[in-house]
Design a protein around this nucleic acid. Structure first.
Lengths: 177, 177
DNA sequence: GTTGCCATGTAAGGTGTTACATGATTTA
DNA sequence: TAAATCATGTAACACCTTACATGGCAAC
């Protein structure tokens, strides 16, 4: 899946500039792209070319013009079709498991050290996601059902890191047994 | 992280051809690359150029020569350094959450249908990972500690999909409440 | 007689990243 | 006076994927 549907989704709420979108990406965990300029600005141009978004240009003094993008009817339809399309299972890229796979060459101390460092990383991520959920002001509130959906999405990430910590604790137990 | 350390890891067990490696990738969940030719054969050439692997060529009649790659001392060192390097938190690409994020426009029926299809996908994946763990003959057994590490790695994937199913059930409860 | 396995490789393109570039305004 | 924010964009390249190409052998 490419970034374009995520952008269409954001625009389905409100008109935004590329800069706004970029910030929303980097503030959000579940919109998992880095939010780099290259991709966002190019995608917006493409969406505009395909008629899925419209563009209003606001001139500014001493700053580049603001280009405010809005979703079109066609864009809304494409978004809806995508939302109804075949759900994909999450893709997990887990380099740490690959490190572990060949970690038998390490001493017990080195291995323990590795596990400790991984645990720290996880705890940091978990904290970050929790904070994000608290703030969450970057996105507007909507219907009751939408609020449920959104809080369940945050919950998904929190559980992911929590479960990973549980798994890690079990790994320690298993190793020392 | 790129595919090269995974390949070095496989070669740290035994000499292999590109074709062998390709099969191991496509048989394995946690080596999460597609195992396509282009990447594997090119990476092997690069590893060879950098002196991290050596290559023995076995001629065959009527078939392309087998190129059997083995890890070198230098390669073993590089692998070890990588295993000891800073663990990275897993990268989760979860397009379904993005679908859900904009799913408020759907009717209750459409949403339920979407959740059902996602559940089916998850159950299929879970089955596949479990079967893989049962078979698991593609990789040789080693020390007791290594066996622990490997079974914990499989366990990580099984839990991931199981937890996702639990989360999905909770989402249903939450929506109907 | 078609499918799958063995074994190599190439072509083309999609998707994503980091870093570079500009330049005024506000904040610490 | 250094950094962050606003706002656009480009360059270069890393990584990964699907599909194409060859061709013999074995199995069903």
């Amino acid at each position: 899946m490419s970034i374009q549907y995520a952008i269409l989704g954001l625009l389905s709420w409100q008109p935004l500039t590329g800069y706004d979108i970029k910030k929303m990406f980097s503030d959000s965990t579940f919109l998992y792209w880095s939010g780099n300029n290259n991709q966002i600005y190019r995608t917006l141009v493409q969406l505009h070319k395909s008629g899925l978004v419209s563009r209003e240009i606001q001139e500014q003094e001493n700053l580049p013009d603001r280009k405010i993008y809005s979703i079109t009817d066609k864009g809304s339809k494409v978004l809806r079709d995508w939302v109804l399309s075949e759900p994909q299972v999450p893709q997990l890229r887990h380099p740490f498991l690959i490190q572990l796979a060949w970690a038998d060459q390490l001493t017990d101390n080195e291995l323990e050290n590795l596990l400790n460092r991984y645990q720290e990383e996880l705890e940091m991520q978990l904290l970050m996601v929790k904070e994000q959920t608290e703030r969450k002001k970057s996105f507007p509130d909507r219907s009751a059902r939408e609020n449920k959906l959104w809080s369940t999405i945050s919950e998904n990430w929190i559980r992911f890191y929590s479960n990973e910590l549980i798994w890690l604790a079990d790994l320690r137990k298993n190793l020392s047994a």
